[in-house]
């Protein structure tokens, strides 16, 4: 099964501000399982690219969280997930785009990242 997971950064990832529950190691683990990963955050897209590169983590995409639905046109997979910390933005945009949604703590405990 092909899966795509999009990560918010601030409040979601350990490198966010505030820090969240999802570690870079979890992202690497997901990638090792063949999952397509990247970030959908409010941070500038150029900054999102810089973050992945700074930490040496490969990524397949960056985008703004309100443009989550655009990923569906770029990646044809069987399951799409977004991980984020805001009900009114992350969860809402995920639902609108037809993505599954995880809160950061849920994602950090998910077999997809472990």
């Amino acid at each position: 099964m092909t899966i795509l997971i999009s990560f918010d950064i601030d409040g979601t990832m350990e490198i966010g501000d505030p820090a969240g529950a999802v570690t870079l190691e979890m992202v690497k683990t997901a990638r090792a399982k063949g999952i397509i990963t990247g970030s959908c955050s409010d941070r500038p897209m150029s900054a999102q690219r810089a973050i992945w590169e700074q930490y040496g983590v490969e990524y397949d995409f960056v985008c703004y969280k309100h443009l989550l639905s655009d990923l569906k046109t770029q990646f044809e997979v069987e399951e799409y997930y977004h991980v984020g910390d805001r009900d009114d933005l992350d969860r809402k945009y995920a639902i609108q785009a037809g993505f599954g949604f995880f809160w950061p703590d849920e994602a950090a405990a998910s077999p997809l990242l472990l």
Binding site: D17, D42, P44, M45, S46, A47, A50, Y64, K65
Partner: peptide, 16 residues
């Protein structure tokens, strides 16, 4: 001091 992130036209124009 904390996030030395430049902005590109794409960053600004596509922001929510």
């Amino acid at each position: 001091q904390h996030r030395p992130e430049e902005l590109t036209p794409e960053d600004y124009q596509l922001a929510r």
